[in-house]
Each structure stands twice: as C-alpha cells, then as structure tokens.
Design a protein around this nucleic acid. Structure first.
Lengths: 251, 251
DNA sequence: TTGACTTCGATACATACGGCATATATGTAT
DNA sequence: ATACATATATGCCGTATGTATCGAAGTCAA
C-alpha cells in the first residue's frame, strides 16, 4: 500500500522512488543579491554597484555575491551588506528567488534576493563609502511588481544589469504590502522620529499622500510607538514630540 | 571616481571588482518542493510522499524534485506537480527558499519552495493516484510561520522529513496573509460554489469563524463574484445561489 | 395539502474607523 | 508683543463591519 510497482514511470518519477542522491544531479551557481532601501526626499533609494566588466558593462547592478559552502543564505546576504556597504545589524528579509535560465548570459545563476532597510543617515554613509545610489521611481498609479525605473541623483535613467530592475520592483511591492501590518516603516527611520517624519516615510513608500489625522490616530493606537518626552529641535516652529519604536511588549 | 584602488580588500570584495566569473564559484544542488494545499472538513490538507530511503526513512516529505539544466524554477514546480500528483493548470506561486547548510544530511541542497492550491475534488484524485495526504493542524491561536503539525486521516502525527514542517508552516502563513487581498480563496473551490462554501474555506484557512453577513456583503461588493443564476441542489433546505469567480474585468 | 423545519438572503441599527474641518497650543522670527 | 507656522485635540460625517430580526424558499413528514 505504501509503494506500488512503478507503472509507466513518468519522467521525473524515478528521481524519487529509486536512488535519490542529490549529489548526482545538476549543480548551479547560487548568488545572493540585496536591495538596500532607504527613504528620503520623497523617493525611495537603493544602493547600486557600477559594473566594469562584461556583461552589462557600464550599467549598474545590485550588490551581490555568490553563496559559499558553509554559510546560510541569510549569512551570505549579511556578508554582502557588510562587504559592499559596511553595514551590519540592519533589517534584512528574503524577497524572492530568480532562476530564469538565461538571466545571466555567462552561466546559469540562481539568485536569492534579499531586501534590507536602513535610515537615511546609514544609507548616505554606506553610499559614500561604497558605491553609487539610485533613486527608485515607480509608477505610483499601477501595481508594481514588474521592472521599475531607477534614476541617478540628476534624474538620468540608470539602466540596471541582469533582471535587477525586476528585483527592485518586487522589493518595492513587498515593502508596500508589509507597511501597514508589519513594523517596517520604523526601519527606515533613525532611533527617534516625529509622527510627521513617520508619515512622510509611509507616503514615500506608498507613493501617495496619507491623511495626517488618521495616520496619527492609527499609529498612536497601535501601541508600537513610545513617547520619549523629548521634543524636536532646530525647527522654526512648534517642535513635535519625538517617539521611538516600542518593541511589542506582550499585553 | 567610478573605481578606487582596492583598499584593504575585505573578504568577498574581490568577487566583484576583479574577475567575476560565476562558473568559478561553488555550485549547489537546487531542488523544488511543492506544498499542495486543499481545504475541506474544516482542515487544510497537504500532499505528502512517504520516504523509503534514508535519510528520514519512514517519514513523509513534500513532493519535490531537482532543478534541471534548462527549466525555470516554476517549470520545475509544474513538473513536480505533474509527475507526483498528475495535476496541471493549478494555482502555483513561489513561497520561500530554504538553504540551511545541513537541512539535507547527505549534501547541501538549496530548496525553492512553491505552494499550490486546488479544490477538494482534484486533491482527492491526486491523493489516490499518487501518495498520501496529511491534514495540517496549526495552532490557530499563535502566529504561524514556524514548523506546523501534520497528522494523518486518523489523527496520528506524521513527522515530516527535512525542514518540511517549517515549509508547510510558511505556506499556511502566506495563504492566510493573502486571503483578504488576493483571490486565493477561489482556488480552493471548484468551478461554482455557494457563499457559505466560500465562507467555510476562508474560515478553514484563517482558523477562526468569520461573520456571515459581513462576509457576504464584502464578497458581493468586491466584484469578484459572478452569479450563475443556478442554485445549489441536493440539500434539504432552501438552496443557495451558485457563484463563480469573476476574473477581474478592468473597470 | 399543510405545517414544521432549515437555511438563504434582505433589512435595520449600533458601533468602529478613516477622511475632513476647525480650534487651540506651543514654539520661532521680527 | 505680535505674526506666523506647525503640532495636537476635538467634533462631524460617510462608510464598513458586527449583530439582530424577519420574510423567502426549499425539504420532509403527517
């Protein structure tokens, strides 16, 4: 009952029933690419690395690297962030795996994409140290999930190598989807922030204005915010209260 | 400006700047595992394959197979569904990629997990033809994302091989998350269905009762339902109207 | 045929929440 | 001190959801 004689062994069937030794099968290069996202000046930004080798020479690519023998995928992504952007301790989550046979013209590469979120200060520091930054401009109207336009600081289009424009697009889509049920907005801000700053971040991610009062109420009622008691400084108007992200204490 | 002399080349740095040939790097076995999900009798069910080889002999595993040279990841998942469950044309979506170095004790295998949704009839047919089915029992209370318990038709625990319990748990979590903003509920039903049947499917996936009237209103207002004009038959009470899923015509 | 029974599906109402407008508070600049 | 800008609080309203109720439309048994 547990195992019938193999009847008309369909292709692929034998993989399982008989000798099933993974080491016998095709092997692939596995890479990890990271979409490092920050939000400022009303746009999302991402870190890019200029390519000076073929293929896609002169274009820009996401920071990435090949998986090593004894590291996990997440460790590889962490390593990439550390080596290419000198960043550590940032929010990092797996995004999607891209495996089109010809996505890399040299040889087949399976790429496990991650996305990471940092605040503006860390992003600028990483950008100066390491590489180039690109602004992400997405068509705010339609759904995003496909390729996305990336421009440089002067507004010129930055063509992305490989399928990286698609990866960036999927990162934006994921970020949008998580925004109102997971605490990702805070990851794009520093330690303390005002409610308006938090609102601007949400607006930047969503690509549309949000109602100020509703947003305040919702955020304050969510229990995710903790008032610091301190106030904004350096502004020429009434300073706003500074909040910090409250790690969900069990109610 | 575009390229500085390499200063204190950190590990991993050289991967990018100098010769960057994917074929030089470590290669890995890449597998595709599929969580085939159906909903009936108040529980979620998934298709499992008994293992009669080491490791995890006697336990059950998700249907899976190794990626081939010239197929995409999705093609591999489709192939697995076809060869292991004789299914085609079902809803299929990438779930997550699992790459712990020792998740397979034989050799390192990167597994790209997919989940597929079918209605009860197709699931039963696939289950009889191919393998064993397992009921998914998840702790309805807490968040699911980690490993999940799977039991057989008699309620006995079915230990899952490898990290497959974790994969199943993630599939349940994804399904729950998508339920109220993507048309996934319909995938678990046949061509036509009553509103109550649709409600039961949602309740099964969510693991909690939902309000009947609100659910009706929400579904009817969503524009995703199309009345067939026909009514339920074979019930000893007033028959409900049969609906079908309306593929979103642009408004 | 009639009445009991069950579920469907419509209607009414209370409540919660977001969008919106307005008023007041609290800081800076002149 | 006064003007000004933004923060923050409050009230109103429309919409969506939770809940109760009731008639409608079938089956079944006497």
């Amino acid at each position: 009952m547990t195992k019938k004689p193999r009847e008309s062994a369909a292709e692929g069937e034998s993989e399982f029933l008989a000798s099933y030794d993974p080491s016998k099968y095709e092997r692939f290069s596995v890479a990890v690419d990271v979409v490092l996202v920050a939000a400022f000046e009303g746009d999302l930004s991402t870190l890019l690395v200029p390519r000076d080798e073929h293929p896609f020479k002169g274009q820009h690519a996401l920071p990435g690297g090949f998986l090593r023998k004894d590291e996990t995928l997440e460790e590889a992504a962490t390593r990439v962030l550390h080596s290419k952007a000198s960043l550590s301790g940032v929010f990092l989550e797996q995004l999607y795996t891209f495996g089109e046979p010809r996505r890399d013209p040299r040889t087949r590469v399976i790429s496990v994409a991650y996305y990471a979120l940092v605040d503006e200060a860390r992003f600028r520091a990483a950008g100066e140290r390491a590489a180039r930054t690109g602004r992400i401009r997405v068509p705010w109207e339609g759904e995003t999930g496909g390729p996305v336009k990336v421009v440089d600081e002067k507004g010129r289009a930055l063509p992305l190598a490989f399928d990286h424009a698609e990866i960036v697009g999927m990162a934006v889509k994921r970020l949008r989807g998580k925004l109102d049920y997971a605490p990702v907005g805070f990851q794009l801000l520093g330690e303390t922030f005002t409610l308006l700053e938090l609102q601007r971040v949400h607006e930047t991610v969503l690509g549309r204005p949000v109602n100020k009062d509703s947003f305040r109420r919702r955020m304050l009622a969510s229990g995710q915010l903790e008032a610091t008691g301190r106030a904004q400084s350096g502004v020429d108007h009434r300073p706003a209260e500074l909040y910090r992200f409250a790690r969900r204490s069990a109610v």
